Structures are given as structure tokens and as C-alpha cells.
Amino acid sequence: MATLKNLSALMILLAVTVALLPRATFATVGIPDCAKGITSDCGFGFFKIIVLGETSAPIDECCRELVKAGKDCHNQFVESILSSHKPIKGTISDLYRRSNETWNNCAATSSVSPPEPAH
């Protein structure tokens, strides 16, 4: 019985840590300047989808923010996250796949045009 209690307490602690740590870390990770227009709630949402492997889709407003920032910025953001976090769910290849899926879904559904790529 004591082992079950300890396991339950450990699971609760783990869940709280996973829920809170990425949000705190997101604020301190070297976010590219181009991503400053992405709100912390949207950034955290993208983090959960790309790094933690959540299956929810980003909300329309977050997709507009992402597309407005541009694909290059999205890639920089993903690289900055990857430099300080390992994927929680899957491999690095899975992280890049989820990143591309997120960008493609947002670009397809957003009414905002992405910026011209820098030359």
C-alpha cells in the first residue's frame, strides 16, 4: 500500500513537472527575434505539439502568428528548442516531422501570407 502511495505521489510530481517546466523554460530559451510576435501561450502550445507530441492542433490565432513569423523563423525556433530539450515523445526525426506537419497545417489554414524569405 505504501508503494502505491509513493508511486501515485511520484506520478503527480512528474505530471506537474512536465506541465510546468516547458513553460518556464520556453521563457528563457534563446527565442529568435523573428519569433517575438508569437505569444507565450502559442509558443507553449507549439512546444507541446512538437516536443511533447501532443496530438491537438494549434488554434487559428496561433497559426496566424506562426505563418506571419515565417517558415525560416519556425525552423530557427525549432532548432533553439531542440538545442535545449530532447523530444519527450519519439525521436528527433519525430520532432522534425511534427514540426513540418505543424507548419504545413498552419500555412494551409491561415489567411496570413508568410513573409518573403531572406536572401
Results as ranks from 00 to 15, higher is better:
110 S>H: 03
99 S>G: 10
114 P>M: 00
15 A>F: 14
38 I>F: 00
37 G>W: 07
38 I>N: 00
21 L>S: 04
61 E>F: 14
73 C>G: 08
3 T>V: 13
85 H>C: 11
75 N>L: 12
118 A>V: 08
59 I>N: 10
24 A>C: 09
71 K>L: 06
69 A>W: 02
17 T>Q: 10
1 M>A: 13
35 A>F: 10
28 T>S: 12
26 F>S: 15
107 A>L: 03
75 N>Y: 07
52 L>T: 07
76 Q>G: 06
94 D>I: 07
42 C>T: 08
78 V>Y: 01
34 C>I: 05
66 L>H: 04
38 I>E: 01
21 L>Y: 15
21 L>R: 06
99 S>N: 11
31 I>A: 01
56 S>C: 04
111 S>G: 15
104 N>V: 02
112 V>M: 08
47 F>R: 01
71 K>D: 07
53 G>M: 04
21 L>M: 12
108 A>H: 04
1 M>F: 12
118 A>E: 08
30 G>R: 12
92 I>C: 01
99 S>T: 08
25 T>G: 03
33 D>N: 15
35 A>E: 02
65 E>N: 12
115 P>D: 03
74 H>M: 07
58 P>C: 07
118 A>F: 05
72 D>Q: 13
105 N>P: 01
68 K>T: 15
3 T>S: 13
70 G>L: 04
108 A>Q: 05
100 N>A: 07
53 G>P: 05
44 F>Y: 10
12 I>C: 04
19 A>H: 14
92 I>E: 11
91 T>M: 05
82 L>P: 00
88 I>A: 11
108 A>T: 01
87 P>R: 05
27 A>T: 11
102 T>D: 02
50 I>F: 02
4 L>E: 14
105 N>K: 13
89 K>T: 07
118 A>G: 00
58 P>G: 07
86 K>C: 06
86 K>E: 08
19 A>K: 06
27 A>L: 15
56 S>Q: 12
38 I>T: 00
118 A>N: 04
6 N>F: 10
30 G>W: 09
31 I>N: 02
16 V>G: 05
57 A>Y: 13
9 A>E: 11
107 A>T: 04
11 M>W: 11
51 V>C: 05
76 Q>K: 10
116 E>C: 06
36 K>T: 13
11 M>E: 13
10 L>T: 14
73 C>M: 05
4 L>V: 08
2 A>M: 11
98 R>G: 01
51 V>D: 03
81 I>M: 09
56 S>E: 14
41 D>M: 12
65 E>K: 09
113 S>I: 04
112 V>A: 08
119 H>S: 15
26 F>E: 11
83 S>P: 01
28 T>N: 06
83 S>R: 15
112 V>D: 01
50 I>R: 01
16 V>W: 09
68 K>F: 03
78 V>D: 00
53 G>S: 03
77 F>P: 01
57 A>V: 14
82 L>K: 14
